[in-house]
Design a protein around this nucleic acid. Structure first.
Length: 585
DNA sequence: GCCGTTTTCGGCCCGACTGTTTTCAGTCG
């Protein structure tokens, strides 16, 4: 059995979840969580470690979990998981998504009322059975019902752009209030995760202003429900179904609080452990010495003025928020003062955009002018190829007419004094046999080809990889488009071996795009370390179908940063001349 | 379940808030 890292991680993670639901020791469950994340972020195949019987060399994998993985490799299953699956109904996992319900309460409700489905849970909340359980009450039952309603209407998470819009509006609203000395978005939005659950906003203000600030927050026009309100924290639900948490701390404590509320949880756990190792305690108010009993001594604070100071106390350089995922940042920032990551201003041009020739909404000229307005110096036009009939893909004759039009517009723009180039590209379908979508002669005429899969996404892993291999080996292919084909919150991607794909692409001097459309963000940032090790090139591709779609580049830049991409490995930072040379290299 | 140059056993990150309680467990981030 060929075990992938993702598959092993998924098994371990499921054990962790089911253990909690089965009411078992939380630390034990956490050990499986940690092991899952470790395996997932390995940049070599776990299969090698299995073969060499070296699993326990990996930190966080002990004898017991190693044996579980060996069992998985040999028999295809893990006894402890099989056992858990029998004991814990699958439906209960769904309940974890309900806010206010954790493993303990789920365990209690399931056991004492003998129910497993979401519908049964709704019934028992409505008829008073849940309220009758010890430790639960009428309010708990109401909260559960309400939370299920929200969940069914809006889902658990939203796309990055939606969260970004909600947060920006609230940020603007709060920023100007009197007493607000510091304000920042925190949480997963500050870390630019690809999807967002709750939105976190942090304010530094003296406590006598807090009440007035919370008043404005809870009375914002988009707020439909106030979920909670204390002296330092308030949570609301907006009309788009998102929960927003606002924390107010004193300006002095702002840096520590910002670090704390930015997370990730995993990053914070390591930070606190590092503090403990240095006889300190880290919390949202700062760093403190430990007293003789090993407890936080709030009378002995360590002075700091910024996040940077706090990292420095723990022998680390400042970690950009995007990298705070406990995926290698500690090793890096122990040894290095900083990291050179792609910046927004580095982007010089737009690669991957559609026009009215296929399924875009604007003409080539309109798209080009929109790029110019935004200060970009080239447009890599890539309409769909002929097989994408649903998207108005170009027949060979269309291609030649489009080339003529591009020549004319290039000339016209040049006459107007613009230093701007439209590159003749195509987003060629990778057919099921791995061929590109035109004959070689026509393909040669393009400045560059983005090769993407749009159909047959469900093929087996082996067949998908054979398709990609053939496409990458084709001399015309310069960029691989949205490799997994996932649509965030809608459908998962194809089953492919991304580690292998990255190796192949890097070997053939072919780039893999970071599709910047917030529904895709594919290549996923989690493969950033592998890409870095292989020297893979990428491009920030808005996949724009409208002029406004060009602005999605900003999400792509953030994801590239999150994937540890530096400027030199991003084609979109090249000048038109450099890019042309690279296309022909 | 994992880990350890103070430890092979006994820890494992920490505080706010809520709802249920009369002192705290569970959830959340």
């Amino acid at each position: 059995m060929n075990l992938t890292n993702e598959l092993v991680a998924a098994h371990l993670e499921e054990i962790g979840v089911l253990m909690r639901l089965a009411g078992e020791n939380d630390f034990r469950a956490s050990a499986f969580d940690r092991a899952a994340r470790t395996i997932e972020s390995l940049d070599s195949p776990v299969a090698n470690l299995i073969e060499q019987q070296k699993l326990t060399d990996v930190k966080g994998i002990g004898k017991s979990i190693a044996e579980d993985i060996y069992a998985l490799a040999e028999t295809g299953e893990i006894p402890v998981l099989s056992d858990l699956r029998e004991r814990v109904p699958d439906d209960l996992k769904e309940w974890l998504r309900i806010s206010g319900l954790g493993p303990k309460k789920i365990y209690k409700i399931h056991h004492e009322l003998g129910i497993t489905t979401l519908d049964e849970l709704k019934e028992k909340c409505a008829d008073g059975s849940v309220a009758g359980l010890s430790g639960m009450g009428k309010k708990s039952a109401e909260k559960i019902l309400k939370s299920i309603e929200w969940l069914e209407q809006f889902g658990e998470r939203c796309l990055l752009n939606e969260a970004d819009e909600i947060a920006s509006a609230l940020y603007q609203d709060l920023k100007q209030l009197s007493g607000v000395e510091e304000i920042s978005v925190a949480g997963s939005l500050r870390r630019w995760k690809e999807t967002i659950g709750d939105i976190d906003i942090l304010i530094g203000a003296d406590s006598d202003h807090a009440s007035a600030i919370f008043d404005v927050f809870t009375q914002n026009e988009h707020v439909v429900e106030v979920l909670g309100r204390g002296d330092t924290k308030s949570s609301v639900r907006t009309d788009q179904g998102r929960q927003v948490d606002l924390r107010i701390v004193s300006p002095k404590e702002f840096p520590a609080a910002l670090m704390y509320f930015t997370g990730s949880k995993e990053h914070n756990v390591v930070m606190r452990q590092r503090a403990r190792d240095r006889n300190l305690s880290l919390n949202e108010y700062g760093l403190f010495k430990l007293d003789s009993g090993g407890n936080t001594d709030f009378d002995q604070p360590v002075k700091y003025d910024s996040e940077k100071d706090i990292y420095a106390e723990l022998d680390l350089a400042w970690v950009p928020p995007e990298l705070r995922e406990d995926r290698g940042e500690f090793a890096w920032f122990e040894k290095n003062d900083s990291i050179s990551l792609l910046e927004h201003d580095d982007i010089r041009g737009v690669l991957h955009a559609h026009s009215t020739w296929s399924d875009g909404k604007y003409s080539v000229e309109q798209m080009a002018r929109a790029c110019i307005e935004r200060g970009y110096t080239y447009l890599g036009l890539t309409d769909h190829s002929q097989t994408a009939a649903y998207a108005g893909g170009l027949k060979p004759d269309d291609v030649k007419r489009q080339w003529d039009e591009v020549d004319q517009i290039n000339e016209k723009l040049s006459e107007e004094g613009h230093v701007f180039t439209i590159f003749k590209g195509i987003e060629s379908d990778i057919l099921s046999n791995g061929n590109l979508d035109y004959d070689d002669k026509l393909l040669e005429g393009f400045d560059f080809v983005i090769a993407s899969i749009h159909s047959g996404l469900e093929m087996s892993r082996d067949k998908m990889m054979a398709r990609f291999k053939a496409a990458i080996e084709h001399p015309a292919t310069r960029i691989v488009g949205h490799p997994t084909g996932r649509l965030l919150l809608q459908r998962g991607g194809s089953d492919i071996d991304l580690n292998q794909l990255i190796e192949w692409a890097a070997e053939h001097n072919t780039a893999i795009e970071i599709n910047a459309n917030p529904r895709r963000l594919d290549l996923d940032w989690r493969w950033g370390q592998k890409a870095r090790d292989c020297g893979l090139q990428t491009a920030i591709c808005p996949d724009a179908h409208t002029t406004k779609g060009i602005d999605d580049i900003r999400y792509g830049v953030q994801i590239a940063r999150k994937g540890w991409f530096e400027k030199q490995r991003v084609l979109s930072t090249y000048t038109a001349k450099e890019l042309k040379d690279w296309f022909n290299s």
